[in-house]
Design a protein around this nucleic acid. Structure first.
Ligand SMILES: [Mn+2]
Ligand SMILES: [Mn+2]
Ligand SMILES: [Zn+2]
Ligand SMILES: [Zn+2]
Lengths: 151, 151
DNA sequence: CTCTAAATAGTATTCGTTACTATTTAATAA
DNA sequence: TTATTAAATAGTAACGAATACTATTTAGAG
């Protein structure tokens, strides 16, 4: 069952448009993974063929600002988006570039203290494990030594 | 004292050019931090005013492939480069975007086992702590709520 | 010094993303 | 329901980081 984000949107003074709802639905369909803006445009056009790429980009930014989405980044594969389902990290496949949630967080008071010891005010953190998923282990599309040191 | 990378370059069949040496020198000057390609171009032109941006980009890629450099990435601030001085992670300032080395690595056999339990072949990992450095804590240039959910 | 493959400078091109603008539409109130 | 209006959209233009291309230069070998 798709949860409705209507009230969440309206509470922020946002209008509920078909484009906005579709983007949220698409991201809800793949809760365990993440998607690029381009992938979202492609899937969105299956249901709204005339949706503008600009609309998708604009809404992804808006929904990130509202805290409904999270934006991730990695060397060599641009931005990825996902529903903000709470703090977690990912396994990143260097073959198919899919990101899968992992249930481990390295941040604890010990690490935080280490960072703050140098006068740093900690706000957030990022952790990702890179490698090859089960599918890509067989016929690895990008071997570790052919991706330009951009693992 | 600047170490010479001449032999390292030549052992890979690379020519030692002034441009290449300059890029390595510049990155050696700021061992604790990282730099964007654009910043490197700017500093390089102080010594070689006619150096082409394309040359810098091309060499950064080449030197990454050779393993002399590492390329990092984060949401909202493009690629950063540093000398490959061995495995380490960074504090990332959300104000000035500077990256400072941190002496902590979350990867251990326990975490590795967790990732491999799902059929994932671990190759690498990334960890970064985001916040505000001492300088930026005072007059924070970007507050956490104005950077579009792109912490 | 000569030769040649590699590298460079300068320019054009690509591609993801953002900006702009006329038109449409969601939400509110009459 | 209709009228009103600010927000959102589609379509297009513009942007900027990165790459591709090409004529020229150069590092390194003989
Ligand atoms: Mn996730
Ligand atoms: Mn470093
Ligand atoms: Zn965490
Ligand atoms: Zn590590």
């Amino acid at each position: 069952m798709l949860p409705s984000y209507d009230k969440e949107l309206q509470s922020h003074g946002c209008k509920v448009t078909p484009q906005r709802s579709l983007i949220l639905d698409i991201l809800h369909e793949s809760l365990a993974h993440t998607m690029t803006a381009d992938e979202i445009v492609g899937l969105a056009r299956e249901q709204q063929p005339n949706i503008s790429a600009g609309t998708v980009y604009r809404n992804l930014n808006t929904l990130c600002e509202l805290g409904l989405l999270k934006c991730l980044d990695s060397v060599g594969d641009g931005r990825h988006y996902e529903l903000n389902t709470g703090h977690h990290h990912h396994l990143v496949c260097l073959g198919c570039r899919q990101r899968v949630a992992i249930d481990f967080c390295p941040m604890n008071s010990e690490v935080r203290d280490l960072a703050e010891k140098s006068g740093f005010a900690v706000e957030d953190h990022n952790f990702e494990i890179k490698g090859y998923c089960t599918k890509c282990r067989a016929g690895a599309k990008r071997s570790p030594d052919t991706n330009g040191g951009m693992i």
